[in-house]
Amino acid sequence: MNNMIELSTVTRSYHRGCERIRAVNEVTFSVAPGEFVAIVGPSGSGKTTLLNLIGCVDKPDSGIVKIEGEATNDLDEAGLTRIRARKIGFVFQQFFLLPTLTALENVQLPAVFLRNGDRSARATELLDRVGLSSRGYHLPSQLSGGEMQRVSIARALINEPKLLLADEPTGSLDSANADIILATLRHLNAAGLTILMVTHNAELAAKAGRIIALKDGQIIASA
């Protein structure tokens, strides 16, 4: 059976002035279907960069990223779009909600692009699940950071992806709400969803099935 995620010697570097920073440096690892993996590491260690590479919103300079056995390096725009829309739910660190859409509409947005019919009922249900049933008609500008974070989690789940990439999904939440989100993620994981979650919270990471620790763009520990 194919791995859900497979990375081999993936490198992504940025120029800062004349300096070249390897944000992700020859990283190799794989995630089996149904796993719940936490990625930890200090700020700037390359966690977001790594997630972007897996989520097909960034491209590596070298190395191969495979999603369900499909190498994304070779895919054209249409292929990447298909993977982003069908296979992956992405909770971005900065949410990336559309300012003109209400919470409910933001949650539905990926379904619109998938021509998935009217998903407003499911969107309402998802908002309910992340504890935001009363905020459906609010614009992002009318929401707190934690609320926006939960909207973006609901959005990541609307198309029922196989893989959830979550960049600090509880970073802006109090412990009560963080617990709700974690419980939701574990529940989804139990139902078969593969989860790759970045977190600073050691307690949260401990509840994942596996922890990958990054430092300076490289894996320093995997357990």
Partner: peptide, 15 residues
């Protein structure tokens, strides 16, 4: 940028 976000969550260039 907003169009870029849409692309991130599955919009095709044609969309």
């Amino acid at each position: 940028r907003e169009f870029g976000y849409m692309r991130c969550v599955g919009a095709s260039p044609l969309d």
